[in-house]
Design a protein around this nucleic acid. Structure first.
Length: 426
RNA sequence: GGAGGGGUGUCGGAGUGGACGAUCGUGGCGGUCUUGAAAACCGCUGAGGCGCAAGCCUCCGUGGGUUCGAAUCCCACCCCCUCCGCCA
């Protein structure tokens, strides 16, 4: 959510930013509603001040056993007006909030202007894509042939875009999770969080999934509970409505959770394999930081996510998303893309964003810079550290051998009980 | 799921229709005293909105309602605690 005061004082800046994103936003309507709200508020406050002082007077008269009927009659009328005004005000505020909640964040000045993902800018590359002396298999064939992934039975038991992981496949997934968590906890200084896997509508609004992206989520019937699309939701909302002590910042948290996504509108895309599932695991990095250094924190967070791929020795690149491709709540996003041989291109495996005060304002997460000072909004950041299913897919594909086996990356072997290879027929 | 109790400021805990944005204690900050510290004493100490300011308005779990006036009365919902049931 943007600060209404910014929109009021600098509407052109906001319009320009929205144009860069390709977003249609009714700024003028908003300003008109805001002006109405402000004049109504002034009028109402005057009336309330009068009501308060006269009501007090009535109290005094009553105590003194004097007659106050004429004042009461007068106040009855004023009260009616106030009630009506309050209703109008509530309506206006609702309309204003409804609009504010669908306005995306303003892109940071360093974000390249562009219309879609074709205009994202590569900032660095790491590792070399392996040359295969044989035709590499896609991970879904490898997984099925090795007997470690079963898509077909998942289709029977649940439906499309689900999978069973079996045997060493399940173990590999678990190893990847533990490796990532240990790295971020022990070496990068994050606090481990195991969050709830459902969150209420208010939390979903806080991080920006609602109201615009309801169709992307699974909702429990008859409840205000949604399956989380990412641990970002529960972990960021952990401090919802709170005022933190400035000395606590920065706060680093790493949450592991399954993620549930309806994938509405992606019918026909990535229908095979582990890349686009209704349920997948993700290790998510979340930061609450001082506004002055949130961009340094974004660089560090991205580096923390990259470290996962370096240790797994998976080739990747980092791109800065352009204005048209940057997510709704984000001011700046780096995507990390891993090399996927079957796609013959890089595939997104992490998305690292600085939301500045956008989420903090929605979720009311503030900090007090100094004892006694006024609270300010924190800046929130998050990034996948990284997506587990896609990591497993990338390992299978990049580490496959001509005989259909898959070598386990060195760093994962301790987590696999020393297993070095997953071979067919085992 | 059933029965009962409860949600008030950092925390504890008063307050059952008007002088209560809220007694008191506690914690925090500042000061007096002291060689220093502790103790004692004095003062300050929630959030938000509008305003240059003075000041005004709103907020006692949330949302409605009654009333000239609501922390206080009524209704609904949420959360917490205790007991029972059921489970992992």
């Amino acid at each position: 959510m943007l600060d209404i005061r910014l929109i009021r004082s600098n509407p052109d800046l906001v319009k320009e930013a929205m144009a860069k994103r390709g977003a249609e936003v009714p700024v003028d309507e908003l300003l008109d509603l805001d002006a109405q709200r402000r004049s109504l508020l002034t009028e109402l406050e005057q009336k309330k001040a009068q009501r308060n002082s006269v009501s007090e007077k009535i109290g005094h008269l009553r105590k003194a056993k004097e007659n106050a009927d004429h004042l009461i009659a007068e106040m009855k009328e004023l009260s009616e007006e106030i009630k009506e005004g309050d209703n109008q005000l509530r309506e206006l505020e609702q309309k204003i909030r409804d609009i504010l909640l669908i306005i995306p964040n303003i892109p940071h000045s360093s974000v390249p202007v562009g219309k879609d993902d074709s205009e994202n800018v590569e900032v660095r590359r790491w590792g070399e894509a392996r040359e295969f002396p044989f035709e590499p298999k896609p991970h879904w064939d490898l997984g099925v042939d090795l007997g470690i992934i079963d898509f077909e039975r998942a289709g029977k038991v649940t439906g499309a875009r689900f999978a069973f992981m079996k045997g060493l496949g399940a173990r590999l997934e678990r190893a990847v999770v533990n490796f990532m968590l240990d790295l971020h906890i022990n070496e990068h200084g994050y606090l481990e969080i195991l969050p709830p896997y459902m969150a209420n509508g208010d939390s979903m609004t806080g991080t920006g999934q609602l109201p615009k992206f309801a169709e992307d989520m699974f909702k429990l019937e008859g409840e205000d509970y949604y399956l989380i699309p990412t641990a970002e939701v529960p972990v960021t909302n952990y401090y919802k409505g709170e005022i933190l002590d400035g000395s606590q910042l920065p706060i680093y948290m790493v949450g592991f959770s399954p993620c549930f996504r309806a994938e509405a509108g992606s019918a026909g895309r990535d229908t095979r394999g582990l890349v686009r599932m209704h349920q997948f695991h993700k290790v998510e990095l979340v930061k609450f930081v001082h506004p002055d250094n949130s961009y340094d924190e974004l660089e560090k967070l991205t580096a923390n996510a990259e470290e996962v791929l370096r240790r797994l020795e998976l080739p990747y690149r980092v791109v800065t998303l352009c204005t048209g491709d940057t997510g709704f709540s984000s001011a700046k996003t780096y995507d990390i893309e891993v090399w996927m041989p079957s796609y013959d291109r890089f595939v997104e495996i992490s998305s690292c964003s600085n939301f500045e005060a956008f989420q903090a304002r929605r979720a009311e997460i503030r900090f007090r810079p100094e004892p006694g000072a006024k609270p300010e909004y924190v800046h929130t950041l998050n990034g996948s550290g990284v997506a587990v299913g896609r990591t497993v897919a990338a390992i299978l594909e990049n580490y496959q051998e001509a005989d259909g086996s898959v070598t386990i990356p060195e760093v994962l072997r301790p987590y696999m009980g020393g297993v070095e290879k997953i071979a067919p027929g085992k």
